[in-house]
Amino acid sequence: MRSTTPLTKIIMMANVLVVAVALIGLLVLPSASAPPGAPRQGVAVSGPPPTSSASPSPTPDLPSAELPPPITASAEFARQVKANEAGAVPILMYHRITRKRLASIDRTPAQVRKELERLARDGYVPVTAREFATGRMDIPAGKYPVVLTFDDGHPSHFALEADGTPVKDTAVGIIYQVAVKYPGFRPVATFWVNQHPFGLREEKDQERAVQWLVSRGFEVANHTWSHPHLPSLPKKKIVEQLARVERLLKRLGVPPSETMALPFGAMPRKRSTVQSGKWRDVSYRFKGVFLAGAEPSVSPFVKGHDRRAIQRIQSNGRKGECRKWCSDYWLGWLDKHPGERYTADGDPERISIPDRLRGSIRADQRKKINAY
């Protein structure tokens, strides 16, 4: 992946453009309706009661998110699978999933399904944003990590049928459909939520929803309380926005957020405000802060990785501002440049890379280098 100074400026400009489009799409247009069969706002999510066990009862017949047993990768094995854990990782950004797109950042169920099936066929295995940020992308050797992220906790992301299975055209429903069709496609994703996760108003319904997801390997984390434009707020208001979500998630039984996504991808002037803070008796500290675009992220093991501003890719085609900056373009680019893509070695204790990339690994990770 290219990394010259002029490109960096272009990327930042593209990110600003993505932010502008998101502002228009989310602030001006009305909220899209939930997919057919999804519960209305304030209506209880059907399904099992919340539980802290790994598999709530009754358990729908759904694929597991468990990772394969770890292996020990030798230099020769890493060469055979063409491992490159200094490569680029696509982190895809989704918003509403609607039958009729009302904004450029909306996607239809068919578009999401098509993109996820493409990822599965091409050898990508989903990991959560938390797993990416902490460097625990322990997927099978020779496979490529991809991070599926969904902003705003929209009703189209998650809802359950009366039998406890995900509604077909929600994000979770589509992810499981693809996982059934392609068994190597791990059914996990990250949902960054606001004050009403998945459009639910009653706390008992919110609790049931997030517990269902977290118990199955999905990540539910912080996207601010009311989705404001953070650069427009004073520091104390930014801290309150983040802490209030942490307080809610704690009540719902979710572990403290290790990641957060900036509303509209807009970074406050003082970055440290969104990295850690305390409001009243609630504190937060994130290991990864995510932007809104506009290229694959560098590996968390390399020197250029900035956990305070992690790049994402908007899920979209190649029209308008997406001609070079959205998922269809970048997935094609990575396919044409496989040497630039993160390829796993299957070994959580080693960072396998071609020998020429030794100098790219962060100093605190060099003891793990397995070069070939």
Rank of each mutant, 00 (worst) to 15 (best):
S46R: 10
P228R: 13
D345N: 15
A344K: 01
D281F: 15
E340H: 10
A73G: 05
S156T: 15
R308E: 00
I139L: 10
G339N: 12
M93P: 01
I10F: 04
G123W: 02
G265L: 05
P234M: 11
G339W: 13
S299A: 12
W212V: 03
A266Y: 03
P70L: 05
Q195M: 13
V193W: 01
H305M: 09
I139R: 01
P231V: 08
E202Q: 12
S52K: 00
S299P: 09
L23T: 06
E246I: 11
D345R: 00
L233N: 03
C326S: 03
I351R: 02
I97V: 13
G304A: 10
S283V: 02
R247A: 15
D347L: 04
Y94P: 09
G277K: 00
I361T: 01
A75T: 12
S53I: 09
K82S: 14
D122E: 15
F158E: 01
I361P: 04
A65F: 12
K367W: 00
K204Q: 14
G346Q: 09
R323G: 09
Y284P: 08
P109D: 06
M1Y: 12
Y94A: 07
P183R: 02
Y372H: 10
T224G: 08
Q41A: 14
F185E: 11
P63C: 08
I361N: 01
V193K: 11
D169F: 00
A88F: 11
T8W: 12
G142Q: 09
P197A: 06
A32P: 09
P63G: 05
E246V: 10
E117Y: 02
K270E: 14
D281L: 08
R341H: 10
L160C: 06
Q275N: 08
E161K: 07
R107T: 11
V220N: 01
L29P: 03
L331M: 14
V254F: 06
M1T: 14
I24G: 06
R136N: 07
S46D: 08
L200P: 03
L331G: 08
G87K: 03
V45W: 01
I175L: 12
A243E: 00
K168Q: 14
P69H: 06
A110Q: 14
S46I: 02
E76V: 07
G288M: 07
P69M: 08
G25P: 06
Q311P: 01
M260N: 06
V146R: 00
I105P: 01
T259E: 02
L242H: 00
Q111A: 13
G339P: 03
P70C: 06
R285Q: 14
V239L: 12
G304E: 01
P70F: 11
R186M: 10
K319V: 00
N84K: 05
K236V: 15
E240I: 05
W279P: 04
D335W: 02
P70G: 07
R358E: 15
I351M: 04
D122M: 08
W333E: 14
Q211T: 13
R308M: 02
D151C: 07
R107F: 00
F77A: 15
P69K: 12
W225L: 13
P263M: 12
Y182F: 14
D106L: 07
R341A: 15
